[in-house]
Design a protein around this nucleic acid. Structure first.
Lengths: 214, 214
DNA sequence: TAGATTGTTAATCGATTAACAATC
DNA sequence: TAGATTGTTAATCGATTAACAATC
């Protein structure tokens, strides 16, 4: 999808959901309009950066003296994020984390739809969590190919993660969202995103350490 | 803690855990030594970047022609990340996600120790998950101040998140790890890290969309 | 009108990358 | 020795920020 603007960066993409979160709070408070300067202030960002970021998503320009309509801005950002979203995904590994993700309904706000789940434990087979059926892992190639899903979510233990990853890719998956705390090897042409709580923790800890020094 | 090097960036900190993950796989394969060039290749990074990153963590320099000892490098990076870590944290909100985090033992590799959990549901009070006792939320100020923990993990529903956040801060917490999908307002002097699955998803989706275009 | 806010252009800053002398 | 790898210096690149004319 073309959007006219060049240079959409990962940093911009990463900030989009935080704008959305703040805007939704404003909406709940029945605030009608907001300026990029005010958003920047609340989120501790630079106003010019916020203006540039929003320009990627907005369909109509902001109004001088007024700013942006909160509800319109929410809609524009949701559409913007949605336009990148691959609708269908499968999840492999119905342990604690897998269950949590299956139960989470927030993904649909971002256009993600988990169409099926897989696990090796026969006790879980054919049961449902949040309307999603759990299949034996052996059925993965068949169901995945039938569904056409291009994204795989890995929530299995470390030792199984690479095998599951290979299996997903050989069945047509092109994007891997890895929640297993291990390094995965993927071929060229496959996108990999490691969900890395350790990295978040490292950043927060470092900031906190700096703060406590003062 | 001083480390001699200037300019430790968030980007470097974010990459550290991924080095660690890959190195641990090498260790399991009984690989003895590894060069920064080889690490860069496997992780799709620039070799100069890997060299600079590792220089922040390593206690002794790598050997020309040999590279780094895998086990020493693991130890150095763990120490490096650990030196920033605030040992003690409390968790508020023992729902699905809170339970998952309480049960997860991987945090201790990064020096994080959850000392207590809180919830508003009386059914949970005084029960334990993974050795951590769950207390009524009213006891938060008392227990938090007694423990001296400076980090708070928020896993409550959206609507309660700001109140919990305020409560944590007024009881001495200086770092907030927010898993609730909402914007939080924190005063200056408090570090906030939003754990943002939506942002990850946006990045992965965008990459996947690009890949599927080709 | 006056002035707040817009979007954009140009300057700055910092991270990434290339190149290379030093080393074993 | 020859050459792979180190750590570092200098060049490049891209993101952030400041400044400002245009707008209502």
């Amino acid at each position: 999808m073309e959007n006219g603007k060049e240079n959409l960066s990962v940093a911009t993409l990463r900030r989009m959901p935080s704008y959305l979160r703040y805007l939704k709070i404003l909406r709940d408070r029945e605030v009608k309009n907001i300026s990029s300067v005010a958003i920047a202030k609340e989120l501790n960002l630079n106003p010019a950066q916020v203006k540039k970021d929003l320009a990627f998503a907005t369909k109509s320009p902001g109004k001088p003296r007024v700013g942006f309509s909160v509800v319109e801005l929410i809609k524009d950002i949701e559409d913007f994020l949605g336009c990148y979203n691959i609708k269908d995904a499968v999840l492999v590994g119905v342990g604690k984390l897998g269950r949590t993700l299956l139960s989470y309904n927030g993904f649909k706000n971002y256009g993600l739809n988990i169409v099926a789940a897989f696990d090796s434990d026969p006790v879980l087979w054919n049961s449902e969590i949040n309307g999603k059926t759990i299949y034996p892992i052996e059925k993965l190639p068949e169901i995945l190919q039938a569904s056409g899903a291009k994204m795989g979510i890995i929530t299995v233990p470390k030792v199984a993660a690479q095998d599951v990853c290979d299996m997903l890719i050989s069945s047509g998956v092109r994007g891997i969202w890895n929640f297993a705390a291990t390094h995965l090897n993927v071929p060229e042409g496959v996108a990999l995103k490691n969900e890395d709580l350790a990295a978040s923790l490292a950043i927060l800890s470092q900031q906190l350490t700096e703060l406590l020094k003062e």
